[in-house]
Every structure is written in C-alpha cells, then in structure tokens.
C-alpha cells in the first residue's frame, strides 16, 4: 500500500466519505476483473464487488496489514468459495484441461451463465486468446495467475489467501505459465519469441 492509498484509508477512518470513493475507484479494475474472471460471469460480479467492500468497511477497525488490495482479494476469495458451496448445481469441468485436481474443485460448483460485460467489451484477438486460455486453467492455478497479474499480489500473500504453502502457490503459477505459454505459442512465435 503506497502513501496515497494509506492517506485515503486514514481520511476515510476519520469520516471522509470521498476518500472511500477514491479507494473504491482505485481498486475497482483489479478487484472487479479478478472477480469477473474467477466466476466467469456465472454470477453478477457487482454483487460480489459490493459485498467485498461492505465486509471490508465493517471490519476496517481490525485491519492492521500493509496490503489493502491483498486483503480485499482475500475477502473476495472467501466470498466466491462460500458462493460455490451454497450452489446446488454442479458443472463438470473441462476434462481436457482440468484433470483430477479441477474435477473436485470448488469453483465448478458455481453454475455458468455466460461471460460478463467487461470481457465481451474487451480487446484484441491476442487478448481473447489469452482470456480463453486463462478460463481453461484449473481454478486454483487461475486464481494464482490472476492475483499476480491483476493485483500484483506477492506469492506469500497468495499462499495465505489460498491457505497453502509458498511452494504450492509457486507450483500453481508455474503450471499456469506452462499452459498459457502453450496456448499462446503461435502468437508468440509470430512475435519472434522462443517457446521451448
């Protein structure tokens, strides 16, 4: 958390509502994007986004950490897991990409209803390609990758969010990178990179 973020947080704690608005805007893109890509449009991301902030604000007195965004991600992670556990429907994962790890994964308990508005509105063919590749990752690997790329969350914090060891978090990122590298192989070779 940089000095500006800390200042906004302190101002809000002193009662400045506008400071909260600045924090919400500041963290909107990484947090919303993470929620959207983790739930794949199966639920309204606005609902989870709002719930994350409500829980954060209600527990702000107990927040003593350095990384506010990491804390918000942790709340979002728990909310998505709770949501998945409450859902009765069970969507079978893509067997070709998930393997045994994905088959029992919590995220697949969330029913799929389509891709969210932000994803549809976005970018290039390469972007679409990597989004599709990210969607095919097992949820645990996808979460590590998104926490790194969307929120720049350190691996130690990711391990804490997922409740695993640092080495497990690193291994999940490693496997995600291998799969995404393979998915982007053609683009990467056209770009002139080496894909060994």
């Amino acid at each position: 958390m940089d000095a500006q973020e800390r200042a906004w947080l302190d101002e809000y704690r002193r009662g400045d509502r506008e400071a909260l608005g600045k924090l919400v805007e500041h963290y909107r893109r990484p947090l919303y994007s993470f929620i959207l890509k983790m739930t794949e449009g199966r639920v309204d991301p606005d609902e989870i986004f709002q719930e994350v902030w409500i829980r954060a604000i209600r527990n702000l007195d107990t927040f003593r950490e350095e990384n506010l965004l990491g804390w918000l991600f942790r709340i979002a992670h728990n909310l998505i897991i709770d949501l998945a556990r409450r859902r009765k429907l069970f969507v079978e994962p893509d067997a070709a990409t998930s393997g045994s790890q994905g088959r029992s994964s919590w995220l697949h308990r969330v029913p799929q209803s389509g891709i969210g508005p932000a994803t549809r509105a976005a970018g290039t063919d390469l972007g679409e390609r990597i989004r599709a590749a990210i969607r095919k990752l097992p949820p645990e690997q996808r979460e590590v990758f998104l926490l790194r790329t969307e929120g720049d969350v350190p691996f130690k914090e990711i391990a804490r969010i997922q409740g695993v060891t640092l080495n497990t978090a690193l291994a999940r990122m490693h496997y995600a990178v291998l799969k995404l590298r393979e998915a982007l192989k053609d683009d990467y070779e056209a770009y002139g990179g080496r894909m060994k």
Partner: peptide, 27 residues
C-alpha cells in the same frame, strides 16, 4: 515466457471496460 504471458494478460486486462455500477455511495 513468464514475462510475455504476464504482460499480455495485463495489457488485455487494462483494455477491458469495467462495467460496474457500484460506488462508495451505493456501498
């Protein structure tokens, strides 16, 4: 590959239009 994959994902994410209606007031 790590650098490239992360960069492509981050560029794509920044190009997204975040259509969220939630504000501090609604929260």
């Amino acid at each position: 590959a790590l650098t490239r994959v992360e960069r492509v994902a981050q560029q794509d994410s920044r190009a997204e239009v975040v259509a969220s209606a939630v504000t501090a007031d609604t929260i």
